[in-house]
């Protein structure tokens, strides 16, 4: 090989730079990071089973929004026949008081952005500074 002394270290350097994000994250422990949404200790159940909420919370919230704003239906009957007021502020955030400890945990991890909080507020936010 011509110029092997230059090519091989060059290739090693190149591969090192290209794979930098992978081994940097491995060394700093980021690859083993798991989002930890804080579950309120004093509450036993959500409006629907955890498995359903995990996958479908966005559709559920969308349905609630449409139902309340467009159709004026404000009561949600859950699969266990319990009734809940369809409200982000009053129902969801009544248990999950701080969105930074719950919603943001997974949303930030997955790089998901939503516009809910441009208008809606959560109780902790009020205490923290919004007048």
């Amino acid at each position: 090989m011509y110029d092997g002394k230059k090519i091989i270290p060059g290739l090693v350097l190149f591969l090192g730079i290209v794979t930098y994000p992978i081994w940097h994250n491995t060394v700093s422990g980021k690859t083993s990071y798991v989002p930890k949404p804080e579950i309120p200790a004093d509450k036993k159940e959500c409006v629907e089973p955890k498995a359903f909420i995990r996958i479908n919370h966005k559709d559920l919230l969308d349905d609630w929004r449409t139902s309340v704003v467009r159709s004026g239906i404000r009561i949600y009957q859950a699969s266990n026949k319990k009734k809940y007021t369809m409200s982000l502020n009053r129902t969801c955030m009544d248990c999950h008081k701080d969105k930074t400890k719950f919603c943001d945990q997974c949303h930030n991890y997955m790089g998901v952005r939503n516009d809910c909080w441009d208008c809606h507020m959560y109780p902790k936010e009020l205490k923290a500074g919004v007048k």
Binding site: Y76, Q77, S79
Partner: peptide, 14 residues
């Protein structure tokens, strides 16, 4: 699959 039940029928206040 867990299916959510239908929400209660609308009270006809409109």
């Amino acid at each position: 699959k867990v299916k959510p039940s239908e929400s209660s029928p609308a009270p006809n206040y409109f």
